[in-house]
Design a protein around this nucleic acid. Sequence first.
DNA 1: CGCTCTATTGATAAACCTCAAATACAGTGG
DNA 2: CCACTGTATTTGAGGTTTATCAATAGAGCG
Lengths: 235, 235
Amino acid sequence: MKPETATPFNPDGFFDAKIFEWLTDDERLQVLRSGFRKQLFAGCILFRQGEPALNCYLVNSGQLKITQLNDTGKEVIMRYVGAGELTGAVAVLRDRDYPVTAETVEETDSIGWDKRTMVQIIRQYPDMAIRMLTTVLDRLDEVQHRYLELCSERVEQRIARTLLRLMQRAGQKTADGIWINIPLSRQSIADYAGTTLFTASRTLSGWEKNNWIKSGKERIVVVNPHALVLLAENA
Amino acid sequence: MKPETATPFNPDGFFDAKIFEWLTDDERLQVLRSGFRKQLFAGCILFRQGEPALNCYLVNSGQLKITQLNDTGKEVIMRYVGAGELTGAVAVLRDRDYPVTAETVEETDSIGWDKRTMVQIIRQYPDMAIRMLTTVLDRLDEVQHRYLELCSERVEQRIARTLLRLMQRAGQKTADGIWINIPLSRQSIADYAGTTLFTASRTLSGWEKNNWIKSGKERIVVVNPHALVLLAENA
DNA sequence: CGCTCTATTGATAAACCTCAAATACAGTGG
DNA sequence: CCACTGTATTTGAGGTTTATCAATAGAGCG
């Protein structure tokens, strides 16, 4: 049911990860070789909220959905993680459980390191820690900003921002407009924007009538990004 | 109007900062001496959202309020920063503006480092970066958790959580109950919980009638923490 | 073609915000 | 000591946003 493989590392195609760009080719190779490769199809869990944090992962291709659940089962999407991005580092450097769940939303190729190895890498390359730090700080900034948005903006604005963010992350030009290349249900959009499936559906239906977007099943094409930007910016 | 002093560093009383506890006394002294002391009264701004990030600060005594503003002027309280805690490190390690504002809410004694010095410290003590990283990760965890709460919980629950958090941070036992030793207006509670002054006031009035809290002007005493915990936990 | 999962749409209600107005409180200066 | 002033807080009425629930339609898949 969950086809997956974990193999000795083969570094092909991993060379463009931003977090390693400042290493020499040899160093980078060494770092990459110290990990293990993991290739998964859509719907697989890389790690689950509440489990002890054993590994962190670098995504080579595909997308991960990072979610958080509360006691009542309500799910929130914290972010998507795509090619060249690291995840799980949060948890690995502490003896804590993962605070979030990482799930593939499409076929995904990644490399993982266990806690011990990761700490070794950091000790060997102190600048690595600074790099990771800035990465985490970016993430903190983004969550803080989304927190502010959630406090101060109406649903429609937040959904607009959600589409714009996802567009920037996974947008691809097509004849119609910019296609968000992630399987994206109304529920997911709602979980990302902090609203309900129904409100998200209503809002997108409206935009489709305005011809700002085109959408199919789990599929969104942004036809008029400018309109969404206006919506997001202008209170 | 803004009485403040910046003096050559005198390390008295700074020895218990957790972030330095793993250094030897000599090392710690050296690190502390490389900073500058800053003593401020209530209502002073240490740094402001949007300004270039020049310094980071360690609080020795007092409390800082870390806030974020949006374009329309809506303010959100991200967190409070108390004795032994570092702030501004977020911004200092990048060439970015401060993403938030830090304001003293009471008389506050702190030590600051400029960007160059901080980077030097980190290069000299690589473990320092790991320490800072875990600190930031804790903060990320907390913001993410509050984000989830904001998405999934009702105002009353969030206000309960707010009081409980502040109680843990600055609570002091008194005859009546646990006094939150921070000047704390209804507006601040609202900004922290993500609601309005009026809703916060109404909610607290209700709790006062139940005898769960006692409150005066900018002053809260939690009489029955258990009731608040129940409110926060039980959907 | 039927099954399942996703999306749409309408009606209803609850939660919460907005605004207005009154009241309490702390400090200040006479 | 008291009136005065500015801020903090309370409370009410009314309206908006958005969630909830139910029922239906559509799309993809074997």
